[in-house]
Design a binder for these strands. Sequence first.
DNA 1: AGGATATGTTATAATTCCTTACATAATATT
DNA 2: AATATTATGTAAGGAATTATAACATATCCT
Lengths: 131, 131
Amino acid sequence: MSREFRRAMPLLPISMVMGLTELTARQIRYYEEHELIEPARSEGNRRMFSLDDVDALLEIRELLDQGINMAGIKKVFDMRKRNDVRSYDAIAISDAELRAILREEMQQAQSMQKTSLRQGDLSRFFQVKSE
Amino acid sequence: MSREFRRAMPLLPISMVMGLTELTARQIRYYEEHELIEPARSEGNRRMFSLDDVDALLEIRELLDQGINMAGIKKVFDMRKRNDVRSYDAIAISDAELRAILREEMQQAQSMQKTSLRQGDLSRFFQVKSE
DNA sequence: AGGATATGTTATAATTCCTTACATAATATT
DNA sequence: AATATTATGTAAGGAATTATAACATATCCT
């Protein structure tokens, strides 16, 4: 089983993803609604996330912290996707789109305190047997 | 975050572990009862499994398929644990214990069809968007 | 035969998650 | 400035998942 495959395997319930990303369920579902992620579903219709999904969510959080809005993030993700296909030339981002993104980014860049990704503190996922 | 740490991180709900290991919930809980695994618990008391737990369960399944009983598996796990500490000499397995294990293994070795670990078929974890 | 083992099954309660709808503060548009 | 949009909070009600506990049972052991 390849590493890529493993990272794409949907195994985590939303509660764990919330913990890993420090996003609320509402936010995660909202980003799905906007097609930034597309978690799999269990038989009973529960969202199951892959590590790739978690990565994407972490990046969304980062970009949001930088003041970029949904539209901008969508564009960034689209660019990334096309880059992965190794066709830099195919990036068809119009001048207007680019300006819109940059404008927003500059406008809001300083209006946000970068609450940087708190790496440690994964202890909340563990429950040490007391006693 | 180290690889070992990641493998020890409890992220998976029991349903996913059931799928990955092809064990029933009853079996998984029973093995926990016998301290072969010790999954973490969520706030709401749900078992959360790590990849290490999954590995252990796969091995349990394998050993059971070989006709080894709980006691034998416990011993095997204990041996493994001590080996990890690099003290082969410290393996204090009595002659009686060893004989008991081997006897059982030989007696039942052929009484079981090795339903070998079906690697493929992870598709059951995915739900392709129909439509 | 009788006891132990490993697992199935069932019942009941608690937890988690889903969707939908409405609320709201911040931001963008006109 | 007034209005619309965005991103998120919150609440309701229902469905899915999991928990524990108890009893059932087939197989194996003595």
